[in-house]
Design a protein around this nucleic acid. Structure first.
Ligand SMILES: [Zn+2]
Ligand SMILES: [Zn+2]
Ligand SMILES: [Zn+2]
Ligand SMILES: [Zn+2]
Ligand SMILES: [Zn+2]
Ligand SMILES: [Zn+2]
Length: 400
DNA sequence: GAGTTTGAAACT
DNA sequence: CAGTTTCAAACTC
């Protein structure tokens, strides 16, 4: 007998500990962590609420004007302003790139100007905002990109709702405002010399020219500053190249510069990795894992194998079950598939058999009678099935 | 500091 | 889309 023998009208789907449910299965939909907002036209937008780095839809939003960055807090995707037609630069930005998703670049998503903090000093973030033609922008100097007009590429105010949450993503013990990227917390808490104030951890890129997402500076929408990079083009001296690189990244992934860590629903202090990790060997318990690095649990969006980065159920703790079996289970449960019962992978079967075998050996060792051994093994199998069901519950967001 | 491991990003 | 390569950081010693 094996777990694969489970059958029924509602197949139990054996997913990873944090997998989404499968239709018609016993699993239930995980509570939605997103929130539905409406854009300027009243169209619903499902957005992941984020405290620290909300997206500003500047360019592709309908209402007009070049009022670049209003100080009031905004939600993700909040209407922000400009029609492309109304933007003088649009007629001539092909050479340097036209950012339809310009607002997904984090250049001006820093500290709210209405709040105290390091925002008073322009950060190293640049905003390739071809449609914020603000030569006298309070957020930074306009950078000439060609004859006739210039682009404000310096950071705008940090339009944020983060202060609306009772649970900041990260502690703010140094008086800095919470930031969404995991590296930032390390910077804030470490005593490294580069950690002073607005200086992020320097990169050490050698081959990317700091113009690919490999570079943390670039990925965070910042220019390199006091970095150790070689052939760096992530600076104002290479603005055109930088624009192009940003454009390429956005074309490839419009979300490329959005924060990777969204927020769970209200009241949940922890965030959720928007794309999830794909760890295979770290168990998501090392900083290789973006979830772990961000100090968050892996979630249903993760496709990790052998994940151990999730809340232990109280049941499991009290059980004090032999960890080898458990870990085998967990790894097996990470085999993700949407096909009912296909989640009973070889790993899972082997883990189960291993548990039963171990139990049999123990029974033998203890000199149990045959019927006693049978009972022990059956109970063990029951435990195995319990683990399966619990994992389903867990993936469904239900209390175990 | 050198060498290895890791997984995201980039590429094919 | 999947498989592979590239890359820079995390980690190990
Ligand atoms: Zn770099
Ligand atoms: Zn850098
Ligand atoms: Zn650089
Ligand atoms: Zn992971
Ligand atoms: Zn994860
Ligand atoms: Zn994980």
């Amino acid at each position: 007998m094996s777990p694969s023998s489970i059958k029924g009208n509602h197949p139990i789907v054996f997913l990873s500990p944090h997998d989404p449910p499968v239709e018609n299965s016993l699993a239930v939909q995980t509570p939605n962590v997103c929130q539905v907002l409406r854009d300027a036209n009243g169209r619903p937008q499902v957005v992941v609420m984020n405290h620290c780095n909300p997206l500003q839809m500047i360019h592709s939003m309908p209402s007009g004007g070049h009022s670049s960055t209003s100080p009031e807090p905004q939600f993700y995707n909040a209407p922000r302003g400009n029609t492309p037609e109304l933007c003088p630069p649009c007629g001539n930005v092909e050479d340097i790139g036209h950012f339809d998703y310009i607002s997904s670049y984090p250049g001006d998503q820093r500290i709210p100007s209405s709040l105290p903090g390091p925002c008073t000093v322009p950060s190293q973030q640049y905003m390739p905002s071809g449609h914020q033609v603000l030569p006298s922008s309070p957020y930074g100097p306009a950078v000439p990109v060609g004859p006739g007009f210039s682009y404000n590429i310096m950071p705008g105010p940090y339009i944020s709702q983060f202060h609306q949450s009772p649970y900041p993503l990260y502690p703010d013990t140094l008086g800095l405002y919470a930031e969404s990227q995991p590296k930032m917390i390390q910077r804030q808490l470490s005593g490294a010399h580069w950690e002073s104030k607005s200086q992020r951890k320097p990169c050490n890129c050698t081959k990317s020219q700091c113009l690919k997402l490999y570079c943390d500076c670039f990925a965070n929408g910042e220019v390199c500053n006091n970095c150790n990079c070689i052939n760096c083009c992530n600076n104002s001296e290479h603005e055109i190249e930088r624009y192009k690189a940003i454009k390429i990244c956005l074309e490839r992934n419009p979300e490329a510069f959005r924060p990777k860590i969204g927020n769970r629903k209200l009241g949940d202090p922890k965030g959720r990795h928007n794309k999830g990790c794909n760890c295979k060997r770290s168990g998501c318990l090392k900083n290789y894992c973006e979830c772990y690095e961000a100090k968050i649990m892996c979630s249903s969006t993760c496709k990790c194998i052998g994940c151990r980065n999730y809340e232990e159920s109280p049941k499991r703790k009290s059980m004090g079950w032999a960890s080898p079996c458990m870990s085998s289970f967990e790894e097996g449960m990470d085999q993700k598939t949407r096909c009912p019962l296909a989640c009973i992978t070889l790993d899972v079967v082997e883990a189960t058999c291993g548990c039963l075998l171990a139990q049999a050996e123990e029974a033998e060792k203890e000199g149990c009678t045959l019927s006693q051994a049978e009972q022990m093994i059956l109970e063990e199998f029951g435990q195995c099935l319990t683990q399966i069901v619990q994992s389903i519950f867990k993936s469904s967001g239900l209390p175990v």
